[in-house]
Design a protein around this nucleic acid. Sequence first.
DNA 1: CTTAGGG
DNA 2: CCCTAAG
Length: 603
Amino acid sequence: MEANEAKIEGSVVPVTNTIRALEKEIADPIVYQLVRVDGDGRLVPATQDEIMVVEDFLEDDKCEPKHVPDTRHTSESVKTEGYLLERNPFQVPEGKLESENPEVGAEKSNVLVDPVPDLGKIEAPEKVAVHGLAPCSEVRNIDLSVRNEVGSNPQDALNEDAPSTSAAGSSLKPDFSKLEGKICLDNLTVKELQETFKAAFGRETYVKDKQWLKRRITMGLTNSCDFSCTTFIIRDNVVVKKGQEQICHRVKSRISADSEDGVANPDSGGSLGDHDNIINDDADFSGPDVSSSAFESCKVTKDLYTEQRTAKRARKPTKRYIEELSEIESRESSEKLSSPDKISRYRFACPETHMRPTKNVRSIARPLVTRQDSLGGSGVQIPFVSRIRRSRPRENFMPLLKLQPCGMDMSTRQVSSAFDVSGRQEDDKRNNDLINTSSSPGWTQQPLIAACEEDDHCSGIKIAELENDIELNECTEDNSDDNVVTVPTQKGGMRRKHHRPWTINEVVKLVEGVARYGAGRWSEIKRLAFASCSYRTSVDLKDKWRNLLKASFVQLPAEKGILNSRKQASVPIPAPILSRVRELADMQGQIQPILSTGKSSGQ
DNA sequence: CTTAGGG
DNA sequence: CCCTAAG
């Protein structure tokens, strides 16, 4: 299975995001894959036998390494009976490169051209040098004039141009700029078709077979890696500009001409864009020039194995891709994938999972489980459905699901328990949370304040009750703890994603807890007073107490009368509570040495 | 693990 | 809130 996947990936994933791939890329940037052109122009995977035939050529080829240029010439030597050598500039040869995801296998089934597994092995590294270095000018400068010579039969033509494009790392570069606007292949004359052919593939053809020409052009363009970078696409046998046609075909095969090296149109704007995670909805075909990146990648130094570089290699994922990605992410991100970024980087070498950082923007990039785009590699334009990227899938998703149950809980709780103020408050907060999703790191306090009023009102009651029995007042906000969102930290630990605002209720409980058990007994307090609030750790309590203390000392000396100090940008803690805090601090005096030093004789 | 304190 | 040192 692995081997199988490997070859699949090779065929479909020219662009890799993994370091490993990059390294490989440098070593063996080019890989050819063998396919045979069927009678009807379809591509069929080469058989082992066929491969054998071609291997010789390849061997030869590698003997003449940096033979850049005369492509046509070189190609001649490589061409074989009806074989198309498909080159995959970015493919990583050898079975070493396993696809990470089983899904790749599935995707592969869509690919008509089944790559030949070990073909890449026979590639000589030297040969590779040609890749990316080949001048793109050659093709470009080809004069558009159509040769009038009588073409040969299709078979000849096949020999003539099929392999030429890609073989030997030819630098033939499709010049789609020659194709302007819409072109209905059906309406073109042979001559025109030939011209189009030339424009598309950068070389002339003498084939007069209209059908063949059309097919070639269509296929070539449709499948062309380069083409995907251009502004043209093929639809219904009509070449159109992307602007005019957003619908992309999901092609199932590729041919040699397309897998042209990265030397794409400079002005085309690569679709392989820089959005590393391209979860951009609309087809945004603008982006850095693929060619340059490809070229550069050949000479990048280690330090460039960064997200940046890999980012450029990313392609637009399919919808399905996204979905699966999300699933995987959700399933695993909170578990074993919680590894730190650094580590994840090393993990790139991991055979099973290729991870790449999310957006560069997201500095705390959470490792994403990705698999190589099986589709993208084919240079196929993947249909892109408008979709909003869930920037933080987990964080937002979970709470959303909670919304419904929440409402129920609310009413239920209100009915069932009179003491239960916290529950409702919690719900409010949660709803609020939903509204504000991830707008800002900080929490919106506005609604909270409203809730606080109620809470304040109730807090009085609660305090009394708390005095009697803290345990009874265990917050009923328990349900909310499955809301607790955690994110993997660099240390592998889980960190709570959002700042969970302390409700007045909690504060009160804390204060009373301290009053009862004494400051410092955080474990006790947590266990007893916050039994049901799993999201508050003893450390949290301690921290909060520390803050309360600070707040109380800041506020009290100044003016006790100010209930809600304006200074208090955050949650206004009712003065009474602060007073109480100070009281307790006084009582337990020395317990707060640092803070109490200035205030009293303490000792 | 809990506590305490710094960041 | 996180991290860490210390008991």
